[in-house]
Each structure stands twice: as structure tokens, then as C-alpha cells.
């Protein structure tokens, strides 16, 4: 049987009333500590690049690449899922988390083969991020050009 709309709404209210709430403060502290630490590690490489004489605009993508490699390596070592379990978005939001989503999918679907497993499913989680970042980026760029002319950035 499918509950009527009234029954379903009433049950939904009961579930909302009875459901446990996420530990917001604890989650926030974990996200802050781990997210901050990952960024501080990134800062170490950024400082190195800057000391090496690179301008900031070139150092930033280089550091992103280094952090992505670290995120992928920690995934391969089986460490990143444990960090993420506690740190939530503190592990998912840094670029290392993006690398984790790609490496974990690649590893998981290796058993379905290199083409249709790894190749096709590598972007299972990261795909939407790239798709909507590109779409939003284009819209933002176009609006920006309309407002301040093509030279602005």
C-alpha cells in the first residue's frame, strides 16, 4: 500500500521529530582542523614554489597538482577514507578530496576492467563537479565580460 499524502506528511513529521541530529559542533571542529591542516600543507608547497621564484599565478596550479597527487596517494594507501569518515567536508572540500573521489572510483572499479571499469567510472563522483563548474564558469565569465568588458578579470 502507498500511504496517502496526509499519512505520508504526518509520518514525515514524526520522523523529523524522532531522527537524531548531526553533531554539528563536533563535525564543524573536525572539518576546521582537518581542512585547515590540509591547506597548511598546501601552504608549505606554495611557499616552496614562491621561494623558488615562481609567480603566485603559476605556483597555485602547481600546488594544486601536488596536493592532488598526495590525495590520490593517500587513497591508494587506504588512509583517506578514514580521514573523511571523521572530517567530512574538511576532507572532501580540499582538492585532495577531489583526487580521492577519482582515485577511489578508479580503484573500486578496477575489477570491472581497465576500459569499462577504471576508464568509464573514474569520474563517477568527480564528473558532476567538472560539468557544473564548467557550466557555471562560462555563465560567470560571460556576465563578467558583459559588465566590465572582455579585458577585466
Amino acid at each position: 500500500m502507498k500511504a496517502t499524502k496526509e499519512q505520508a506528511d504526518e509520518y514525515k513529521r514524526l520522523v523529523m521529530r524522532r531522527s537524531p541530529r548531526p553533531a554539528i559542533l563536533r563535525n564543524a571542529l573536525w572539518a576546521f582542523g582537518v581542512g585547515g591542516t590540509i591547506c597548511a600543507v598546501g601552504q608549505f608547497f606554495l611557499n616552496l614554489a614562491l621561494l623558488g621564484g615562481l609567480p603566485l599565478t603559476e605556483a597555485v596550479p602547481l600546488v594544486a597538482g601536488v596536493m592532488i597527487a598526495i590525495g590520490a596517494a593517500l587513497t591508494g594507501l587506504g588512509v583517506y577514507d578514514r580521514i573523511g569518515k571523521r572530517a567530512g567536508m574538511g576532507a572532501a572540500l580540499p582538492i585532495t578530496g577531489f583526487a580521492n573521489s577519482i582515485a577511489s572510483a578508479a580503484m573500486e572499479f578496477r575489477r570491472e576492467g581497465l576500459l569499462l571499469g577504471v576508464g568509464a567510472r573514474l569520474f563517477t563522483i568527480a564528473g558532476p563537479v567538472i560539468v557544473y563548474a564548467l557550466a557555471a564558469g562560462l555563465v560567470v565569465a560571460l556576465i563578467r565580460m558583459l559588465v566590465s568588458g572582455p579585458a577585466g578579470s
Binding site: 590540509i38 591547506c39 598546501g42 565569465a141
Partner: peptide, 27 residues
């Protein structure tokens, strides 16, 4: 420029890099 990796490592930097690259390319 203010926070260094504090801003460039979290994922919003990816959106920023796309927009920046698009505007640079367009120019």
C-alpha cells in the same frame, strides 16, 4: 593573495581557476 593555499586548495578555487582561465582566454 591573502590566504594563499587556504583559498587555493579548497574546491572553490577550481571554479575560480575556470573563470579566470576563460576571461584570460577571451581577452
Amino acid at each position: 593573495e591573502f590566504a594563499g593555499a587556504g583559498a587555493s586548495v579548497p574546491l572553490p578555487a577550481f571554479g575560480h581557476a575556470l573563470v579566470k582561465g576563460m576571461l584570460k582566454g577571451a581577452a
